[in-house]
Simulated assay, not measured.
Amino acid sequence: MSNASNSENTTNQNKAPSPTKPAQRQGFGGGPGSRFVPGEKPRDFKGTMQQLLGYLGKYKWTIILVLFIAAASTVFSIFGPRTLGKATTALYEGVIRMVRGQGGIDFDEIGTILLRVLALYLSAATLQLIQGFIMTTIAADITFRFRQEIAHKIHHLPLRYFDHVTHGEVLSRVTTDVDVISQTLQQSLSQIITSIVSVIGILVMMLTINVTLTLIALTIIPLSMLIIRYVISHSQRFFRKQQEYLGHVNGHVEEMYGAHVVLKAFNAEDQSISTMKQLNDTLYDTAWKAQLFSTMIRPIMHFIGNVGYVAVAIVGGNQVIQGRLMIGDIQAFIQYMRSFQ
């Protein structure tokens, strides 16, 4: 009886541990498997933003100056195509005069217009450089303070904190999260005001050129949005599943490498390989579908944009023939249309 019991215990001990379900896989030491949590939402977005604004309070007037510089740079860039269109119109009118034998091309006028365009774009580029320098300085200063305070906080945390928070999570706070804040401060703040000014300014310019062409351009935008929404709605679930199984694969690899001695002791290599193959096949399938849908967006946008260009060229060309529109205005209008893509 005792021998039978010992034999049964030995058999149970030699059984390989059953593979962990993918949904429960976390990985040792807070590895990549614990970082890919699909659908994770901020716990206190409002409070976090208030704290971030508190850090930015020291640079309030500097940030206001940066936003003003960003707006001015955008305005200069917006006036560029319209001014360049005048040069095209002057060249076209000069060619017409040459054909009719009534004169030639006024290169002095064209040169003056091109100098204005050069001044506009140089001013925009200079302001962008100043804006980038200021925001980079602010972001570097704030991230330096963040890392100092995080290091001070970590040194004063009780040891029990590290019992339930993984090493990867702590390192992520010091590195990845702070870098994301730095990139946001350098780019997003100025891009918000730049985007708003660009949309309003370009729309005003398009309306001043021709209302009919503007309506044609605006009808393309909702059509593009509908198609993009349809594609994104189908691709999102594949991207979520891709991130989920990427975490599962990373967690499985980390577990197997971290516990390879135990794995070999229980002769579980085949089970590990089988689990890895299942996870990897699922990841491949979802990643392929996600990338397929995501790569469809740009060709569709280009096609719709080209349809818009054709419509603008036909309607605008007809108005040029009728003398209701200048050819340089069509050039400027098409450049403004490109800004919406």
Rank of each mutant, 00 (worst) to 15 (best):
I209G: 00
I181L: 01
R240E: 12
L215E: 10
S198Q: 15
S182C: 07
V174R: 12
M225P: 12
L185V: 05
I232Y: 02
H167N: 14
R229G: 15
R147G: 05
L213C: 01
S235L: 08
V180K: 14
L218E: 01
V204C: 10
K153T: 05
F238V: 07
I154L: 04
S190L: 10
V170A: 08
Q236G: 10
Y230E: 07
I202C: 10
H155V: 14
L203Q: 11
P158R: 00
K241L: 14
T219K: 06
S190M: 10
H155R: 09
R240T: 08
I202A: 11
E149W: 11
L207P: 14
R173E: 04
V199W: 02
S172P: 09
L223N: 03
T208I: 13
N210Y: 02
Q191T: 12
K153S: 01
S198K: 09
D177S: 07
H156N: 14
V211R: 12
T175V: 15
G201Q: 01
F146R: 04
I196A: 11
T175Q: 06
E149G: 06
I193V: 09
R237Y: 14
F162A: 07
L218Q: 04
L185Y: 00
I228C: 11
L203W: 11
Q186C: 07
R160L: 15
M225H: 07
I209F: 01
A151I: 05
I181R: 00
Y230A: 15
D177A: 01
H164Q: 12
V174L: 15
T219G: 13
T212S: 14
I209M: 03
V197C: 02
R147N: 08
L189R: 04
L203D: 11
N210H: 02
I154S: 00
L189G: 09
L171C: 07
T175R: 08
V180M: 15
S190N: 11
I202Q: 10
A151P: 05
T212M: 13
H156W: 08
L215N: 11
R160M: 15
T214Q: 07
I181S: 03
I209S: 04
R160P: 13
I200T: 05
I154T: 03
T208W: 08
L185W: 00
R145D: 10
M205C: 04
